[in-house]
Measured scan of single mutants.
Amino acid sequence: MPVRRGHVAPQNTFLDTIIRKFEGQSRKFIIANARVENCAVIYCNDGFCELCGYSRAEVMQRPCTCDFLHGPRTQRRAAAQIAQALLGAEERKVEIAFYRKDGSCFLCLVDVVPVKNEDGAVIMFILNFEVVMEKDMVGSPAHDTNHRGPPTSWLAPGRAKTFRLKLPALLALTARESSVRSGGAGGAGAPGAVVVDVDLTPAAPSSESLALDEVTAMDNHVAGLGPAEERRALVGPGSPPRSAPGQLPSPRAHSLNPDASGSSCSLARTRSRESCASVRRASSADDIEAMRAGVLPPPPRHASTGAMHPLRSGLLNSTSDSDLVRYRTISKIPQITLNFVDLKGDPFLASPTSDREIIAPKIKERTHNVTEKVTQVLSLGADVLPEYKLQAPRIHRWTILHYSPFKAVWDWLILLLVIYTAVFTPYSAAFLLKETEEGPPATECGYACQPLAVVDLIVDIMFIVDILINFRTTYVNANEEVVSHPGRIAVHYFKGWFLIDMVAAIPFDLLI
């Protein structure tokens, strides 16, 4: 008679799926529990143990900040960024110097990925580790590398530091407007667009060049630039800015003055950032001319202004700041037409079709709590990747769950009947059967004279019903998954307890 339990259901295979997918890609990662103190490590794979030199037993239950890997060259700011990422709910990448158990130093890129439950609360953290440099290539500990984003994938490793954006290309926007319009339909740009040429040739750093990471940081200074100062900065030398009595002219307006920039070969870094931020506020060169004239017309309804409409929906549905990093990277690809469009465009503009998908598509409701890094690593669709929660398995109709209350009560009843059979069957065979043979035949009273025979008949009927119930009862397979398919249940029961239950259900007393 089957006594099969499996009270692990309803099970959740999400954690096993993450481990299996990460292991298949030869990654070095740990999984931490966000619900406990210090976000203790609950799993670390073999790749991480080989990377740091510690065994799994030495890593388990330690804080996922990996303070046991810190050393003299470990930056405090990087460690603080990892700790801050564990307090938030967004994906974050941090470069930090770690030390192995043998004392060797290596520069590592740590990717902190939160995993949320159905309520939107962070319950786990996945920390992925990628070695960037070994100890002989690690720089000085005073050099802070965590304020910069990861290198873009479309640049060669040897040319990542030679990417320079020439400031004269930004200063000569109005001069290039006529050349853009003359391109017409034969050019790649839309009317009114501004073409910015980027020099990728390796050259020595000069005062006129600005690194790509500095251009990325310009967006942080746009908020500090007032509207009046932006307007004066875009007017140009024809209309000098008016300053109040006793007030000095704005240095932001002076930063885009061609006369002032041409007199000296070098520009201050602050002026460069502010000038680029001011130019980015204009949607095209037409807006710059309109600002000089004193009238700013409404933005025209053409394809170039609607190019950012799908980007707005993608940004609203993005799951991490990696989408913004990807957008900034692609927006700086050289030799393309940049349409400086305000994100607050007309909502009635139709979304044009684009061959290049900048932001990841909208994630469906079932995966809105899973970050983009987890979705990318697992390579699963929205119909396959579940949320991290207890999910009731989908069972067929008329199927009994093996952990249901009805099955528990039924098993206790069958257990009592088995005990009765084990006690009274030998007793009936030894004593009652002998008395029946010696006594007179009682054929007239039937079952009324033999109450134990009636009980034995009921017990046999219950055993037959138990066999039928076992054909529709779920079970737990070797992978700790609840199986509810009727065919698989029948095959599993035939290979197991079916023969024993059938022999126990045969009414031998009635056959004798």
Rank of each mutant, 00 (worst) to 15 (best):
T319Q: 05
K135D: 08
R73G: 11
P258L: 12
L256Q: 06
G294V: 09
L311I: 07
D323A: 12
S250L: 01
T375W: 03
T270A: 12
T319F: 05
Q25K: 10
A303Q: 11
S283V: 11
E50R: 13
T270W: 03
Y327V: 08
D119K: 13
A40S: 14
L316C: 05
W154S: 14
T152R: 14
A268S: 08
L173M: 13
T329R: 12
E37V: 07
L324M: 14
I358K: 06
G306Y: 14
P347K: 10
A307K: 06
K166T: 06
E58Y: 10
G246W: 05
D342Q: 05
L343S: 15
A211L: 12
F98H: 01
L296W: 14
D259R: 06
I333A: 09
L338F: 09
R27D: 07
T353G: 12
V215H: 05
Y327K: 07
I358D: 15
A193R: 03
I363V: 11
P10E: 13
L107I: 15
F22A: 13
G345Q: 08
A350E: 07
S261R: 10
T145E: 03
A78Y: 01
L167Q: 15
K101D: 01
A172F: 01
P251A: 10
D287N: 14
V194F: 12
A34P: 15
L167D: 10
L86S: 01
S275M: 12
F29Y: 12
E357N: 15
I288Q: 04
L311S: 08
R280A: 14
L167G: 09
G238L: 14
L170W: 10
L343N: 12
M60Q: 03
D119T: 09
V195G: 05
R92S: 13
T270Y: 05
T353N: 14
G306L: 08
R5H: 09
G238H: 14
L155N: 15
A268I: 14
T201M: 04
A260S: 07
K332G: 09
E91T: 07
T375Q: 04
S255V: 15
T152M: 13
L165I: 06
R164E: 06
R56A: 07
V180Y: 15
S320N: 03
T367D: 12
Y54I: 01
V196T: 01
R328Y: 04
A253M: 15
F29H: 01
P114T: 01
S263C: 07
S239H: 06
H70Y: 10
R301Q: 07
R92P: 01
A83Q: 03
V138M: 03
A89P: 08
N33V: 05
Y327G: 14
V8E: 12
T375F: 14
C105R: 13
A307F: 13
S104R: 07
I358V: 14
K21A: 07
A282N: 14
F14G: 07
R271T: 14
V222H: 05
C52P: 01
E118Y: 06
P150W: 06
V215A: 13
A203G: 07
R301H: 08
A290Y: 04
N257Q: 04
N38D: 06
R273A: 14
E289F: 04
N146V: 12
S320A: 11
L200E: 10
A260H: 15
P299C: 12
K161I: 01
D197N: 08
I82D: 01
R312T: 14
